[in-house]
Design a protein around this nucleic acid. Structure first.
Lengths: 143, 143
DNA sequence: TTGCGTGCAAAGGTTTTGCATGGCA
DNA sequence: TGCCATGCAAAACCTTTGCACGCAA
C-alpha cells in the first residue's frame, strides 16, 4: 500500500471532501462528477478516476465492482469505525452496506490462512447477498 | 428461473460443448470466441452473449463479475459433481482466482443467515487477499 | 410457414491513455 | 524550476441493440 504522496490541488481537495461527506454511502464517478459540476467546481472525469485510483492505492477509499454494467462504486474508509476489523455485507437488491462486527466470522481469516494458505483482506472483501428487509419484502410480494 | 426452451443450433451446441469441457474453470466471452474461431466454427460475439444470458437464466451457467475491467466470467454448473456453490479467493497481487471447496466455510452461510438475517449469494462473493505464492514471493523479496 | 437465432455493425457505457498545458512545492 | 496533476479528446473495452437474413421445428 502506497503512501499519500502528491500535490494538494483544488480537484483533489474537492473530491476528498465529497467522499468524506458521503462516507456512509457508496458513490460512483458519475455521481461525483455531477455533484462537483453542480457545485460550480467541475473536475474532469479522467482526473476523478486518477485520484480515486490513488486513494484506493493508499487505502483511503474502498472500491467495489460487482457489476460491470453499472460501473464501480467507491466509498471513503472511515478510520474511526475501524473497518479493517470486520466484514461487510452488501445487499444486491437495495444496495445497503452492512458493517458486520462478529467474532465468529473473524475466525474465517484464521481458518483460511491456516488451511488454505491465503490471507484475506477484510477491508476489500464484501459478502454479496440479500438483506433481511429485502427478504421480507420478497416474502410479502409472494403472499 | 426459466426453462431451456429454444432451438438447437450449431452455435448453441458449440458454446455449451466448450463450457462443459471447461467446467472446472472460469472462462469469459473473449476466450470462448477465440477458441471457437480457432476451431473453425466461429460464433458471433453477440450470439455468445445472448446464449450465455439464456444459460444463466435457466441455471445452467453461473456468472461472476469480479471487476468491471476484465469483464464477466462464466462457468458451467456441474450438477453431477454435487458441486455445491463454493466461495472464491482472488489474489490481489497476481490476480489468481482460487475455487474454495470447504465445508467449514459454507457454515458461514448458516451463521450469517441465522444471526444476521442476511442470505449470502456465494456466486457473487469473493474473498480478496493474498495467495500463498505471493506471500512467499513477498517474503523472499524482503530477505 | 413461423418466429427464434445469427451475424454484422453500430451504439452505449465505463474506464484508460496521449499529450499539451497548468499549477504545486 | 522540476514534476506531478489536469483536461480534453480519442481510444480501448465490454456488452447490448437494430436489422436483415438464415434456419429449426
Amino acid at each position: 500500500m502506497k503512501r499519500d504522496s502528491g500535490y494538494n490541488t483544488r480537484q483533489k481537495e474537492k473530491l476528498l471532501d465529497y467522499l468524506i461527506r458521503n462516507k456512509e454511502k457508496h458513490t460512483n464517478v458519475q455521481e461525483i462528477s455531477a455533484f462537483l459540476t453542480a457545485e460550480g467546481t467541475p473536475v474532469g472525469t479522467a482526473t476523478i478516476y486518477r485520484q480515486l485510483d490513488k486513494l484506493v492505492e493508499c487505502g483511503k477509499v474502498r472500491k467495489y465492482s460487482f457489476d460491470g454494467k453499472t460501473g464501480a462504486c467507491y466509498q471513503f474508509i472511515d478510520e474511526s469505525k475501524d473497518c479493517h476489523e470486520h466484514f461487510h455485507l452488501k445487499c444486491l437488491h437495495c444496495g445497503k452496506l452492512i458493517h458486520l462486527d462478529c467474532d465468529h466470522l473473524m475466525g474465517i481469516n484464521e481458518h483460511i490462512a491456516e488451511h488454505h494458505g491465503f490471507v484475506i483482506d477484510p477491508s476489500q472483501t464484501v459478502f454479496y447477498g440479500c438483506c433481511s428487509d429485502c427478504l421480507q419484502a420478497e416474502k410479502d410480494d409472494r403472499s
